[in-house]
Amino acid sequence: MDNLGLQRTTRTESAAEACMRHIDESARLQGSRSSPLFSVLDLIKRMRRDPQVGGQFWLIDDRATEQQPDTPVSAWPLWFSKDARADERPMLYLTQSPTSARLSMLTNQTAQRGIFLNDIESSPSRWAKGAHPWLPMWLASNPQCMPYDPACGDEARVILRGALRELYLKGLTGFCYMTLHDEPGDKLECDRSQAYLGMYPLLREAGGTPQVRLLGAGQVLREVQAAAGLLERDWGVASEIWSCPSYTRLARDAAAVQRQKRRQRRSYLQHCLGGSQLPIIAVTGYAEFVAGQLAGHVSAPFTALGADTLQPGQRPDRHWITYLALQSLARQSVIDAGVLGQALQRYNLG
């Protein structure tokens, strides 16, 4: 519910267009190797300095050690500004919020509008990706939220642009959420036409046989890529590799198509994966259920791997991804089951 009474106007749209143009221009200056956190912060800094864009968007920064002197630290000023509420502008909200309770409070302050940029992942924490376990559950179950986990700076910029288009040009309800890590996206070639839709191929035409499909999101995507190398080098298994910035968007779109029984169109997930029976290993740095949202929407053998899948002290790294891919092939009798014992020993996974 919009308890602020925000009014979208033509100036809202023109402001969003100005921000989007700046993002397009900046894409030529920043490479895909930049981290999501660096890319977003650098982009915001450049936008504020650009006379054509600065002042066209609302910026809130509640990070205790990073905030700028002239930047609000909460959305409360909007409640008392009739002029601001009557002329909504794109809102970028920088935060360090590890819990669903805090993020819920912040989004309620903004009438569940805006683009929330959370850089908790780079902070020391006992929780996976710096997030309390309830946070990803809240993100995935909140129909007003579209959550993303970008792997590189290019993905973060594409997602930011897509959110500006959907929220402030098309006028869709809700808010966008991104978690931002500070590790460079080594050699990731982002598909700028598909990343915002939830997934795109990094390596699609895998040669050789047997084959698997490896899906990864965020920082763990580098482990997925490394696992593809191990599978080929050690076991002669070829891999398709897909970056999945939003498992939740993919699952929601697939569920919507199912509910509506719209035979004239396939979900984007079906468009990408089709009817192939190649085993799928979907990996996330969050709890397993985040990637597991796809399970009911694919017909191929499916395995989800997350921070809570393994035993305490173990994490979803390249060796476990490799083992689970081999296990899936063995279950289909594509490879000999004896390979699994060899893999456990080779990678010291016992």
Rank of each mutant, 00 (worst) to 15 (best):
L6N: 04
Q7K: 15
T9V: 14
R11Y: 10
R11C: 07
T12W: 11
M20V: 13
Q30C: 08
G31R: 07
R33H: 14
P36C: 09
L37S: 08
F38R: 09
V40Y: 04
V40C: 08
K45P: 00
R46N: 12
R48V: 03
R49Q: 13
Q52T: 12
D61T: 09
P69S: 10
S74V: 05
K82P: 05
D83A: 15
M91D: 00
Y93D: 04
L94P: 01
T95N: 14
T99L: 08
A101N: 09
S104T: 11
R113D: 13
E121Y: 05
S123Y: 15
P124A: 08
P133I: 02
W138M: 10
P147W: 04
Y148G: 00
D149N: 12
L164K: 00
E166T: 12
L172M: 13
C176L: 05
C176F: 05
D186C: 12
K187L: 14
E189F: 07
R192P: 05
Y196P: 00
L197I: 01
G198T: 00
G198Y: 00
M199H: 02
L203Q: 12
R204P: 05
R213N: 06
R213E: 02
Q219I: 11
V224R: 01
A226M: 08
A228E: 01
E240Q: 14
P245M: 02
T248Y: 00
T248A: 07
R249N: 05
A251F: 01
R252G: 06
A255F: 11
A256Q: 15
V257H: 11
Q258Y: 11
Q264W: 15
Q270H: 15
L273Q: 04
P279C: 06
V283A: 05
A287E: 02
A291H: 06
Q293G: 06
L294P: 03
P301M: 06
A304K: 03
T309F: 04
P316H: 07
R318P: 01
T322R: 04
T322D: 06
Y323I: 01
S333K: 14
V334P: 00
V334M: 13
I335E: 07
Q342K: 13
L344D: 00
Q345Y: 06
L349P: 01
